[in-house]
């Protein structure tokens, strides 16, 4: 992932994100123009999902990396484009690419959740523990998705689950995405210290305050300090220690 300090790289990522977002908006406008209510309701819902990271960033005070925002918008856009242009049905491996990108997106969202837990509660997880949970939850979510397709087809007559071969292929694609994201996360966590991770993800407001009380940051006990300082200054007149403080 790109560190927050790297403004030039962030600038490029922002351009990519907003370009993808504009493409999404153009699909929405086209659907609205055509009056295809079945499609534009879902497109609005998907756009709302794309905007959730911004809302979370504002209210939690935790930075959502632009790469993750791009993956979220890309995975939803791929789905919309696949349905709109019928690529799901005409392009052979389009479905698998969409599954890989979506599972990477879900894996990174799980990573963000784990980072939030670590920073908020001050927990110290090993990088492989985080990677394990990213793979576990992403793959179980992928399996649940495939199961849900089968379930829905069986009981409600939908046509989500094509055949067993396709289902296994989708699960392999999802697992591959989870492994790629977990590998990247493991690599990131190994080379960054706790302080670096806190700097990467915790945002201060304009008054240099935090939105929430992060467990990873030290507590200042001002009340004790003031009282104790008064007592120290009072006793200092009697003659203090002679040796210097050695660190």
């Amino acid at each position: 992932m790109v560190p927050r300090e790297s403004f030039e790289k962030i600038k490029i990522l922002k351009i990519i994100f907003y370009s993808l977002f504009l493409i999404y908006i153009s699909y929405l406008l086209y659907d609205l123009f055509r009056g295809d209510s079945g499609r534009y309701v879902w497109t609005i819902f998907a756009i709302a999902l794309v905007l959730i990271p911004f809302a979370s960033e504002k209210y939690s005070g935790m930075y959502f990396p632009w790469e993750i925002k791009i993956i979220v918008v890309l995975s939803l856009l791929l789905h919309t484009m696949g349905e709109f242009h019928r690529w799901y049905y005409t392009l052979t491996h389009y479905d698998k690419i969409s599954h890989i990108i979506s599972s990477i997106g879900i894996a990174y969202l799980i990573f963000l959740f784990l980072i939030f837990i670590e920073l908020y509660y001050g927990l110290k997880w090993k990088s492989n523990q985080a990677a394990f949970f990213i793979i576990l939850i992403t793959i179980s979510f992928a399996l649940y998705w495939e199961w849900w397709e089968l379930f829905s087809d069986h009981y409600y007559g939908s046509k989500f689950f094509w055949d067993l071969q396709d289902g296994i292929g989708d699960t392999i694609a999802n697992s591959a995405g989870a492994v790629v994201a977990a590998w990247d996360v493991n690599h990131y966590l190994k080379r960054r210290s706790e302080e670096d991770i806190a700097k990467d993800f915790i945002i201060q407001d304009e008054n240099r305050r935090y939105k929430i009380r992060w467990g990873i940051l030290p507590i200042e006990n001002d009340k004790v300090t003031k009282e104790e300082k008064k007592r120290i200054s009072h006793r200092g007149a009697k003659g203090g220690p002679t040796a210097s403080l050695e660190d």
């Binding site: 300090t225 300082k229 120290i232 220690p241 002679t242 210097s244 050695e246």
Partner: peptide, 8 residues
């Protein structure tokens, strides 16, 4: 912080 010396 509290100016204590000869402590550590």
């Amino acid at each position: 912080e509290i100016g204590a010396k000869n402590c550590i």
